[in-house]
Amino acid sequence: MKCESCNKKHATVHLTEIIGSTKKERHLCDECAQGVNTQLAKIPSPTEILTSLINQVAPEISEMSKIVCPVCGLSYLEFRSNGRLGCPMDYTIFRKGLVPLLEKMHGSTQHVGKVPSKAGKELIKKSELMQLRNELNKAVEKEDYEKAAELRDRIYDLSGDTNED
C-alpha cells in the first residue's frame, strides 16, 4: 500500500480516527505521518506506559531504574525484567533494591552457613559464631539448658581469642 499523502513511499503507519460516529482511516509513510499528526507525539510510548505502571506496582524500581552496573553494564530494570544478575558486583550496586526482594524470597538477607576458606579465618570465625548464637537461641527456646550451656561455652571460647563480644 502506497502512502496516501506523498503517494511515493510504502505506508507503514495506519491511523484510525474516530470523530463522533464517523471512522476515518489513514495510511501514511513514516515521514508523512510525523508531519501530519502532531497529536501522535502526545500519546505516551510503551516504555512510558510501562514505567508509570511499574511506579504504581513496585516503587523501588523507579528509584533504582537509573542505576546501571559499571562492571557488567546491566541496568536494574533489565534485572527486574529477566530476574538474572549480570555479575557479582550487582549485589553491591543494586543492594537497595535487592534487599527487600531477598527478604521476600528467603525471609532473610544475611548469609548464615558455609564460608570459603579463602574468605579468611576471621570471617569463618564470625560465621561460626553467628551459627552458634542461632543454635543457642533455639536451645533456649526449647528450654534445653544443658545444650545452651555447652553452646555458651563454645561461644566464649571462640570469641575469646578475637576479643569480640
Binding site: P88, T92, L102, G113, A119
Partner: peptide
Amino acid sequence: SSRFGYLTACP
C-alpha cells in the same frame, strides 16, 4: 560476600 554468601546469577 559475607553478607549475601555465595553470589549466584539468580538471587
